[in-house]
């Protein structure tokens, strides 16, 4: 697959379809995002599928695509994107972080095995250029979700207290998230999360993250992979995403025209009355 991607990237660059290709570069076993402008460099291009911890769209605190476009607004960039990368790009464009018109997406589909490792529900971009559409993993097939939903309130609280007490507050989950775009972050404010307190007070730190991601989580799973303590963060993020779909019929990363229900009125995006009650 990587051969095909390199070939296509080369073609796009030589035919001037794009001015640069944004992807991952592997040098001396280190993988990092890189903007390829020279065809000769493409031999070091690798795919995020094979280097899962490194996500193409957001591997640093400030979004790289945003920074590139800020510096060179006229540059046409080709971005090698999996399903999750593409969802992130759509969601970022919706929030005025990037300009999709200057971006050409080189869509790469993941295999079923990849999807299972990532617990990915939609392992392919909208337009697949390389690879074939594979089946995603549905929510009811995920063990963590199933076991959480089978718990009573007390058991859930005990489970999360134990899990979240492992947190070392490295902010990895936040830093790696492609959708964390605020310049000011509540997780850095003493009012909500006291500095120097370890583990962070239950449940505020993680609650804030889960809630703030409610209408934007694209289920890339980077937070869970980045967590050095192995906290199953995706379990709740996935459930909340499902809820937002149930309540508002909204899915983050699906359509750049569809506004988040949390910034629209009830007339624009109604709240489904029948879905409002919570089963305890």
């Amino acid at each position: 697959m990587i051969g095909k991607v390199r070939e296509l990237a080369k073609e796009w660059l030589t035919t001037k379809k794009v001015d640069a290709i944004f992807g991952l570069r592997k040098q001396n076993n280190d993988v990092a995002p890189y903007l390829f402008t020279d065809v000769k460099e493409l031999k070091d291009l690798v795919l995020s599928i094979d280097n899962r911890i490194c996500f193409t769209v957001r591997p640093s605190k400030q979004n790289i695509v945003h920074l590139i476009q800020k510096n060179s607004p006229d540059m046409k960039i080709g971005i090698i994107a999996r399903g999750c990368d593409e969802r992130a790009l759509i969601e970022l464009a919706k929030r005025f972080q990037i300009d999709l018109e200057k971006i050409e997406i080189l869509g790469v589909a993941c295999t079923n095995k990849d999807a299972e490792e990532c617990l990915c529900p939609i392992p392919y971009p909208k337009t697949i250029i390389i690879g074939e559409k594979a089946e995603g993993v549905s929510l009811d097939k995920i063990k963590n979700v199933e076991s959480l939903l089978g718990k009573t309130l007390e058991e859930k609280a005990a489970f999360w207290k134990e899990q979240l007490s492992k947190c070392i507050k490295c902010y990895g989950c936040r830093n790696v998230c492609p959708m964390c775009i605020c310049k000011e972050c509540k997780l850095e404010e003493d009012l909500w999360v006291k500095s120097g307190e370890l583990p962070p007070d239950f449940p505020m730190y993680h609650f804030i993250r889960f809630y703030h991601m409610a209408d934007r989580c694209i289920e890339c799973g980077q937070c869970e992979k980045a967590c050095p303590a192995g906290i199953p963060l995706l379990t709740i993020s996935k459930l909340v995403r499902k809820d937002v779909k149930e309540l508002f019929d909204y899915e983050a990363g699906k359509d750049v025209e569809q506004e988040s229900p949390l910034v629209t009125t009830l007339d624009e995006t109604p709240l489904k009355e029948e879905a409002k009650d919570v089963a305890v």
Binding site: W160, H206, F207, A214, V240, D243, V278
Partner: peptide
């Protein structure tokens, strides 16, 4: 809208 999401999230966190 916020409270609707909040109540569900609280439920998951116990």
């Amino acid at each position: 809208k916020r409270i609707a999401i909040l109540r569900r999230l609280l439920n998951y966190m116990g």
